[in-house]
């Protein structure tokens, strides 16, 4: 199995069943995992921020940095490899928070809300999620099987 790493503010899509996509250390960021079991096509997006209107110039250069530009890009790229929306399994991971009540550090919550909103608007259901709390998460997607695994330091690997 070959690992292909998805960095922060990056997206990777694959139809190679010998590959495992992995994205490390999701804190407040969200990992959007999609997989079509029939076409055996999947992808991961690791976005940092909810809204590209913050910096349209940056969004043009790095669309995977933002939810509203990254999520459509993830789906479009996967369609190119044969993924179909009606068959796609969708998983959300991340959106953690630090210990804060002031509202200045709630990116995790805002990131998660934005993913929900965009997917809902596009009639895409979320099949599983592991979000919130104060933990750091690493996500693996096996292209051969569609298995999505989440690992946090000091915790057992879990399947979603």
């Amino acid at each position: 199995m070959r690992q292909r790493i998805v960095g922060i503010a990056e997206m990777q899509v694959s139809d190679d069943i010998n590959e495992v996509l992995v994205t490390y250390s999701l804190g407040s960021c969200i990992g959007v995992v999609i997989y079509d079991p029939e076409a055996r096509v999947g992808g991961i997006l690791h976005y940092m921020l909810p809204d590209s209107s913050l910096d349209p110039h940056k969004a043009a250069e790095k669309p995977a940095m933002f939810a509203d530009t990254g999520i459509p890009l993830l789906f479009k790229t996967a369609y190119g490899l044969g993924l179909e929306k009606r068959r796609a399994k969708v998983v959300l991971v991340g959106g953690a928070q630090v210990l804060d009540d002031s509202g200045y550090f709630n990116i995790g919550k805002r990131n998660y809300a934005m993913a929900r909103k965009i997917l809902w608007k596009n009639n895409v259901l979320v099949d599983a999620e592991d979000v919130g709390g104060r933990i750091n998460r690493t996500v693996f997607l096996e292209l051969a099987t569609g298995r999505t695994l989440v690992k946090s330091p000091g915790r057992e690997m879990r399947e979603l």
């Binding site: 922060i8 490390y24 250390s25 999701l26 804190g27 407040s28 960021c29 940092m48 991340g94 953690a96 928070q97 630090v98 210990l99 804060d100 009540d101 002031s102 200045y104 550090f105 990116i107 995790g108 104060r134 933990i135 750091n136 998460r137 946090s152 330091p153 000091g154």
Partner: peptide
């Protein structure tokens, strides 16, 4: 430091259990 652990950069096991100073940003 809080912003980096929030992003998950070097947060390790318990890094996200950090308390940002209230009112600092303000």
């Amino acid at each position: 430091n809080v912003m980096c652990v929030q992003l998950g950069i070097g947060a390790g096991t318990r890094g996200l259990a950090s308390r940002p100073s209230q009112d600092l940003v303000q």
